[in-house]
Design a protein around this nucleic acid. Structure first.
Length: 826
DNA sequence: GCAAGGTC
């Protein structure tokens, strides 16, 4: 029996399909698919199934000096036990094994991990390696016809990276976290990729903060030829004799304005016509896909998550790729033919089919990892996809069209005219050949009409305008520009860059979109710059890349590279010496600044956003325990302190981040006052803390406009029940005997009948009982079908189900994912 | 409870 090992299940299935000619059978064991046919078995891993870590005696942050990690041993342990076990079992009775992981450096390392697991189970089985850059009949067949050996040097290069990243990341993260006494969930992280990325954002913010705006003026006037008016802009020649539009002196601007106002006509001095070719774009790699999705309003993480779904469903190729050159195997004509079946694409396909030849554009990056992202011949119907999925699917399809289409042709027309001694210019552009724009509407093809004029012609001048402006600070990085910059610096990979940005949000380093750094982020970057400059610099990646290349080429060993790196880190810790307190003080001060709202109305100390032991947020006084002033915060989302201040209390406003239901809560003191005045109506004892602490349930309105039944001891007690957003709530005299609460009626103008909601606890319990599976985030319609088939038909079923058992029964669902849904269901 | 890199 020959055992074939791929990097992921999807690849295993497709390779089995190709090699077996469609005759492979699937067996599921331990939650892992094994494909089998004529003397062969194929199993897909899930990326890395083992990971590096320190031995357990290094796991306590307080017991081990961070500096000790610089010379700590590093071990490998399975991280995906079930896959590892199945792999070993299959390896034990294999006669040969073939590693068929992805054709890139990390794939070679994942291949070596598989190699070692196979060896452990079977010490004399021959193990070979096949390489192919797209899973097509030709490539796969020829790769398997001529297998190669694993490249252990290349894998070692990857291992060196793992070790260096772990040691640096863990040692410096622990150091900063301990110095600031932030060792719980809110530790302070540092790493080779995240920290230079954060520094990009921080540096930009520093430029913005240091920016000093300058006043300038721009002037415009309309020129008219035979009733066709077009806008022209004033310009002059500066000291270097180059054209300038910005006038820096107000007096000069006023003088030019006077000239334009007094001029009745302008004489055309020059007319220049040029045609410009506008080439179609290159095929999509991950970064360019994220950028294009970004211009449609999708964040990087969201775009990748949708792409992942489209890939898993078989509609597009693998979304994590560096490659911008289609493989030779790809037959555009055949794929176009398949895509013409979809009505939305039929017109574009016919346009392309009329071309004499179909030659795709090529980008600068040509790699072996995967093909560029393109649609497959497996078409979804519009109803299979959500609106967002369809929008991005169409983007991928149309990008594919664009890469096959003709260039566009533009005519640029530049007219310069003189109104007395003031020069005016206009730039027109006209699309002569629509080219790829006809099939790819995402790039602007706007025209700017300037009529045909001739030199010496006299044009009427009207409506002169003088606009006072100011120079603007540099723009912040948007997510996609950040990812492009990371790529150009070689920081991160196609699979991780968007995750890195999300990590910076999670760690409290950045807020908003485009991201802005917090005070904490500024302090972390400052500390790193002073003591461990390398870790916030993209040079660390560049140096490591050079070392990895050397290892891959046999010029250096893994030991040499990691030892050298350990020594550099050791020296950093020597220099850190006794600055620990000072660094910690600065970090703590910055953390406080991020949470500070303003003066406490009771004692004048700072009010801060704090977190209760149960994990909920509230506003508390820095003077605690002497001052016990508190204010509640909404129970949904994470609070962010905004720059804007409440005029009445001088407190900063608060925004609650909760994904798409993010809202501005405003000043917490105003909210508390409003709640106290209006809607706090006590209805009965709190079932959670009523007996022990006398807590009571009340109908309360939150600043966000939503209402709930909540405990009066909030935030100490977080018991709450949902209420409808609209309508007046009537408290009746009928009582629910079970819960000792009055029955409620909702009177909503929008509905004819009042809604007899009843006892709020009974109502909530009933709601939970009938809640559907698709109410839970992350369960799509297809997954729902599969779950139903496995007997999980309602949320109630889900709550009671055994996660492992469900994972075994349902294809493509892990126990972890089930537990995640269960957590959401509760 | 640290990193970054795979994949779900």
């Amino acid at each position: 029996m020959e055992l074939i090992i791929t990097e992921k299940d999807n690849a295993a299935r497709r390779i089995a399909d190709i090699l077996s000619g469609g005759g492979a059978s699937t067996e599921r064991s331990g939650g892992v698919n094994v494909y089998e046919w004529g003397g062969r078995r194929c199993i897909g891993l899930s990326g890395h199934v083992v990971g590096v870590d320190f031995p357990p005696e290094y796991s306590d942050w307080r017991d081990v000096e961070p500096a000790e990690l610089a010379h700590a041993p590093v071990t490998k342990t399975p991280t995906q036990e079930s896959i590892v076990n199945v792999l070993k079992r299959l390896a034990a009775d294999a006669d040969s094994a073939v590693i068929a992981t992805d054709y890139d450096r990390e794939g070679e390392l994942i291949g070596k991990e598989a190699y070692e697991l196979v060896r452990k189970a079977n010490d004399d089985v021959p193990i070979s390696r096949v390489r192919f850059s797209s899973i097509t009949e030709n490539e796969v067949q020829s790769a398997f016809a001529d297998p190669d050996d694993l490249d252990f040097d290349l894998a070692a290069a990857g291992e060196a990276r793992q070790i260096v990243d772990l040691i640096w990341g863990a040692a410096l993260t622990r150091f900063l976290s301990l110095s600031a006494r932030q060792v719980g969930d809110d530790f302070i992280s540092v790493g080779r990729v995240q920290s230079p990325t954060l520094k990009l954002i921080v540096d930009k913010e520093r430029e913005i903060e240091a920016f000093d705006p300058e006043d300038y003026w721009e002037l415009f006037a309309d020129l008219t030829k035979e009733e066709t008016a077009f806008e022209a802009q004033y310009f002059y020649l500066d000291e270097e004799d180059t054209e300038a539009e910005r006038v820096w002196d107000e007096g000069d601007a006023e003088a030019a304005f006077a000239t334009l106002r007094e001029a009745a006509s302008a004489v055309v001095e020059s007319v220049r016509r040029r045609t410009r070719t506008d080439d179609p774009p290159a095929p999509f790699n991950t970064t360019q896909f994220i950028r294009a999705a970004g211009s449609l309003g999708y964040g990087a993480g969201r775009a990748m998550s949708i792409a992942e779904d489209l890939y898993t469903a078989g509609y597009i190729t693998y979304p994590r790729t560096d490659n911008t050159v289609y493989p030779e195997d790809l037959d555009p004509a055949e794929l176009l033919d398949a895509l013409s079946a979809q009505r939305d694409f039929a017109d574009s396909v016919s346009l392309l089919q009329e071309l004499d030849e179909l030659e795709a554009t090529r980008g600068d990056e040509e790699t072996t990892d995967h093909p560029p992202i393109h649609p497959t011949s497996d078409l979804p119907s519009k109803s299979d996809l959500s609106e967002d999925e369809w929008e991005l699917y169409e983007l991928v399809v149309r990008r594919f069209f664009a890469t096959l289409a003709e260039p566009a042709e533009w005519e640029h027309l530049r007219v310069v005219a003189a109104a007395d001694d003031a020069s005016l210019k206009a730039n027109g552009r006209r699309l002569l050949e629509e080219g790829y724009h006809a099939v790819y509407p995402y790039f602007s093809a706007d025209e700017n009409h300037v009529p045909d004029v001739e030199e010496g012609e006299e044009l009427a001048v009207s409506d002169p305008r003088l606009e006072a402006k100011q120079t603007q600070p540099p723009r912040r990085y948007g997510q996609s520009r950040l990812i492009e910059t990371m790529e150009s610096l070689g920081v991160g990979t196609k699979s991780t860059r968007h995750n890195t940005i999300e990590k910076l949000y999670d760690r409290g380093y950045i807020e908003n979109d485009p991201p802005r750094p917090t005070r904490l982020a500024m302090a972390v970057v400052e500390a790193a710059e002073e003591y461990a400059d390398l870790v916030v610099s993209e040079e660390m990646t560049a140096d490591l890349e050079a070392d990895m290349t050397a290892i891959a080429e046999g010029e250096k060993t893994l030991e040499e590279v990691t030892e050298e790196s350990r020594e550099i880190l050791e020296r950093i810790f020597e220099e850190l010496g006794d600055s620990r307190e000072e660094i910690g003080e600065h970090l703590r001060e910055s953390l406080k600044a991020d949470k500070r709202l303003g003066p406490c109305p009771d004692c004048g100390e700072d009010l801060l956003v704090r977190r209760s032991r149960q994990g909920s947020y509230f506003v508390g006084c820095d003077g605690y325990p002497e001052c016990r002033f508190t204010l509640p915060l909404p129970s949904t989302g994470e609070p962010v302190v905004l720059d804007s201040e409440c005029e009445e209390h001088g407190l900063n406003e608060v925004k609650m981040l909760a994904g798409r239901s993010t809202f501005v809560h405003g000043c917490p003191l105003c909210a508390a006052e409003e709640a106290a005045e209006t809607e706090d109506r006590v209805i009965g004892p709190c079932p959670e803390c009523g007996e022990a602490h006398g807590g009571e349930l009340a109908i309360r309105k939150l600043q966000s406009g939503s209402r709930l039944v909540g405990c009066t001891r909030y935030p100490d007690c977080e018991y709450s029940l949902p209420l409808p957003r609209r309508g007046d709530i009537e408290i009746t005299d009928d009582y629910c005997e079970e819960h000792d609460l009055p029955e409620l009626i909702v009177h909503d103008e929008g509905s004819e009948e009042p809604w007899e909601l009843g006892c709020p606890i009974c109502n909530y319990e009933e709601y939970r009982a009938r809640q559907g599976l698709d109410d839970i985030e992350g369960i799509g319609s297809k997954t729902k079908e599969k779950l139903s088939a496995a007997g999980v038909e309602s949320v109630a079923d889900l709550r009671e189900a055994d996660a492992e058992a469900v994972a075994d029964d349902v294809d493509g669902v892990s126990a972890e994912r089930v537990r995640d849904w269960q957590a959401k269901a509760d």
